[in-house]
């Protein structure tokens, strides 16, 4: 009851925020917090719930960003449709990478590295392929205020789009957690042999987790491309992006519903503070990320969520 009231209040505050907050800059900060929570939720399905630590989720992010942008630039397809095309391509690619990884029993660091390698293959391919803009990348042509084309003149609308996406992803993961599939993912994560002894096909469960995770992450990629009107091979497929994607759910609490959002809020706030203090030192926030990640891994193995879920 109290929990429901709290959630309703939070949601009300999130919906009302753009009406109250006058600063475009602050709205932009919130958009990025939601955005990273969204792609983090995508990673969370595979890395958190199913326990398969992907170090290359930029692969799916990049596929989403590139697919919708190319469909728009080359054939005039609205990115609203393009984002689902991107998700479909990402799911197809994820089934291939998932099959190659899981059929041959890759786990832990080996799986993480294979995912990194797949993302790198796509980054190098995109860098050398003229048709997709090569190293320069893709500029999404601006059409002014064109809601049908996923373009808005004011940030407020991007804010509502990413808020809606985050709500749907969070509700979906909450539902997953209580479903048979969700329990099967957790069982595979906690102990694969025991899961198999109980009739769970670990390969199938991991492949489904991979596909769901890839689809969500790709939708985030399209949002990014529309919001910044730009994507290039490093932004899309680069390892720095892979790290950005996994950082927040791990800090907030992998395998929990609220972990990605919590981690994103923590990093968003800390990022703003350091930016204010040390404007002169560009890139210092990356050093800070590293320190926070180390502290989180050592002292909070179950993320910030672990603080009040400790048994």
């Amino acid at each position: 009851m109290l929990r429901k009231a709290g959630l309703a209040a939070l949601l009300g505050a999130a919906v009302a925020a753009p009406a109250v907050i006058r600063s475009e800059y602050l709205i932009g900060t919130l958009i990025l917090i939601y955005f990273f929570a969204f792609v983090g939720q995508g990673w969370n399905v595979l890395g958190g719930y199913a326990g398969q630590f992907s170090f290359g989720h930029a692969l799916f992010f990049g596929i989403g960003a590139y697919t919708s942008s190319l469909a728009f630039i080359k054939w005039g397809v609205s990115p609203w449709l393009g984002m689902w095309l991107g998700a479909a391509v990402a799911v197809a690619v994820s089934v291939v990478t998932g099959h190659l990884s899981f059929r041959y029993g890759l786990r832990g660091a080996y799986f993480a590295l294979v995912m990194l390698a797949f993302a790198e293959i796509f980054r190098v391919a995109a860098t050398n392929w003229e048709w997709v803009g090569a190293s320069f990348g893709l500029l999404v042509p601006l059409r002014g205020n064109a809601p049908m084309l996923f373009q808005f003149a004011v940030k407020r609308w991007f804010y509502y789009v990413i808020l809606a996406m985050l709500l749907m992803a969070t509700a979906g993961v909450a539902r997953l957690q209580r479903s048979r599939l969700g329990y099967e993912m957790v069982a595979v994560r906690e102990n694969e042999a025991a899961a198999a002894a109980l009739g769970i096909d670990a390969y199938r469960v991991k492949l489904i987790a991979m596909a769901l995770s890839a689809g969500i992450t790709a939708l985030g990629g399209t949002f990014y491309a529309q919001y910044f009107s730009y994507v290039d091979p490093t932004i899309g497929f680069g390892s720095a992006n892979s790290i950005e994607i996994l950082l927040r759910p791990i800090i907030g609490g992998a395998g929990t519903i609220w972990g990605p959002l919590l981690g994103s809020v923590v990093l968003g706030v800390l990022g703003e503070i350091t930016r204010g203090f040390v404007k002169a030192y560009a890139g210092l926030h990356l050093v800070l990320y590293g320190v926070i990640l180390m502290v989180a891994v050592v002292f909070l193995p179950h993320g910030v969520m672990g603080l009040w879920r400790r048994h």
Binding site: N191, A193, A194, A196, A197, G199, I200, D201
Partner: peptide
């Protein structure tokens, strides 16, 4: 047959070294 398929046919086993799902 893989273990999960045999389990589904109705043959279950326990492990000598117990393997619970610790966080559940």
């Amino acid at each position: 047959l893989p273990p999960h398929a045999i389990s589904r046919l109705g043959l279950a086993r326990t492990f000598q070294l117990v393997q619970p799902f610790p966080r559940l």
